[in-house]
């Protein structure tokens, strides 16, 4: 076991974890870009995905694929419900009010999940076996490949959707200027709802696909949400590749921090770097961005 082999394992593990953060970060970015809201409840939709998956798979004994689809649908429906019941009725929404309401929402969702499903941790089976795959002196699980594949797929689909479909263009218009978008006939409210649908669905997908590796319970959303949020910030809140790169960077930093510096302080290392990025390049590492954020 030489050092280069160790290093390649750190990198590979980091990328795998980073892909998870990226998937979650994308959800933050989508809602932020079309509504200007930082949805602190995003992590809870990741949790809902995993828990609905477990619910349909282990309790109702559905086949994995069916459980997966149903779980995403249920979580997306919860996302829409959240928007309709908590975000839309908010008149004269201030950014602060929105922060509080999404925090309240996340506590509520977590609480309901705890009451309905209990406090136990659950695991889903891996999608295609547990046999490790060797790669450049390091090992990965097939499930990691699923995660990478899903990340790539989502970037591509996102890109196509936002560039070429009318709904995607409308969402982008809302991101630039909501009032102007309203004036040219875009139903801004529907777009806001749609972005919640999209983000919660994607969050749920991420939640299901990581559940076989990381387990899931009613309270996994906090930490995963926080990491996803960091990924999105590092990536400059972009809808696509920026956030993904942000997530991957975060994951690699964590793995290297744990392996080479100190496992106890690995999150501190990550956050110090996050602060430095914010201080030096507040528009994110991967976007040229406007200077509005400073």
């Amino acid at each position: 076991m030489d050092f280069s082999q160790q290093l390649s394992q750190y990198l590979l593990s980091g990328l795998a974890t980073g892909a998870i953060y990226a998937l979650i970060g994308l959800g933050f970015a989508i809602i932020y870009n079309s509504t200007g809201i930082i949805n602190f409840a995003q992590g809870e939709f990741v949790m809902l995905g995993g828990m609905f998956g477990v619910y349909f798979y282990t309790i109702h004994q559905l086949p994995l694929v069916a459980a997966l689809v149903l779980a995403v649908l249920c979580a997306a429906a919860s996302g829409v419900m959240f928007e309709r019941l908590a975000i839309r009725p908010l008149r004269r929404a201030t950014p602060l009010g929105l922060v509080i309401i999404t925090i309240g929402g996340s506590i509520l969702v977590r609480g309901i999940a705890m009451l309905v499903w209990g406090k136990d941790t659950h695991a889903l089976p891996t999608f295609s076996g547990d046999e490790p795959i060797a790669l450049a002196g390091a090992t990965l699980l097939p499930q990691h490949l699923w995660i990478f594949a899903l990340t790539v797929l989502l970037i591509v689909v996102n890109k196509l959707f936002f560039q070429y479909t009318i709904t995607g263009k409308a969402l982008r218009a809302c991101a630039v200027n909501q009032r102007a978008a309203g004036l040219v006939g875009i139903d801004v409210r529907r777009m806001v709802m749609f972005s919640f649908l999209l983000a919660s669905g994607m969050g749920a997908l991420a939640g299901i696909i990581v559940a076989p590796l990381t387990m899931t319970s009613y309270d996994v959303g906090i930490m995963l949400g926080l990491k996803g949020f960091c990924a999105a910030i590092i990536g400059g809140m972009s809808n696509g590749i920026g956030t993904v790169l942000g997530g991957l960077l975060l994951g690699v930093l964590e793995a290297l921090g744990a392996g080479l510096i100190s496992s106890g302080y690995k999150d501190a290392v990550t956050f110090v770097i996050l602060l430095l990025i914010l201080f030096l390049r507040p528009q994110g590492l991967f976007s040229s961005g406007e200077s509005e954020r400073v």
Binding site: Q9, S13, L213, L224, E254, A255, G259, S263, K266
Partner: peptide, 8 residues
Amino acid sequence: TDMTAQLT
């Protein structure tokens, strides 16, 4: 969610 770094 991942302890491979420590185990490596």
